[in-house]
Amino acid sequence: MNARLLRMATLPVALIALWEALGRALGGPRTPLPSKVAGEAALLIMSGDLPAALAQSLGRVFSGFAIAAAIAIPLGIAMGRLRAVERNLDPVIESFRPVAAIAMLPLAILWLGAGSGAAVMLVAYAAFFPILIHAVAGAKGVDANLARAAATMGVSGATLARSVIMPAAMPQIAVGLRIGLAVAWTAIVAAELAVGAKAGGGASGGVGQMMFAYYAYSIELNRIIVCMIAVGLVSLALDRLMRFALARAMPWIET
């Protein structure tokens, strides 16, 4: 077991050491180094800049994600159960789905300005499709006998949807929610970056814009890398949190 841990640590440690050594030997004053990155990380955390930026980004992700889930789950269940709804909506959905969320950003900025509104809209748009598609698949995949059994007990309509279809479709929906949250986090970073780049500094905030500012205005590569690591850590933490929440809320499914 210990030999295994040693093997797993070898390459990351070696790469970081190589980076540090090469950077010191060949780099200029601006070359990022692991040691400097660690120092800058401590500074950015102590000063509260990084936590504040992350909190702002996370706030947007949660609002956008909540909007997406609130629309996509009922809509997906309706599409999965009612043929008429699916026939009418599917072409619209399918024509929007391949449009990358980021491409919608300029439109979002145009409509909602360069602040939180555009970012939240983008997140909602990005998270909407994976949740919807999994909800449709989940609702379609519900064992027909479950619905029949409920019918023999006199349960139908909206009660059926809430008490049978939705719980039975939940394993699929849970997958959609996990993917949706991951996509949402990627989208927020992209949105803040692009807003930062296109709307001039200061307008949007969030970790994405923070990174862009370090590129465009002060060339602080060490700080950019701190932000990148933070983005990765948050993405891991969000997935863990999601899994934990889903497992707590729905002990009967496997995530």
Binding site: T186, G208, M228, G232, S235
Partner: peptide, 15 residues
């Protein structure tokens, strides 16, 4: 590396 999305590489990549 995987959790760091490609998009987060944009500023460093630009440089």
């Amino acid at each position: 590396l995987r959790p760091i999305s490609g998009i987060a590489w944009i500023p460093l990549g630009l440089f």
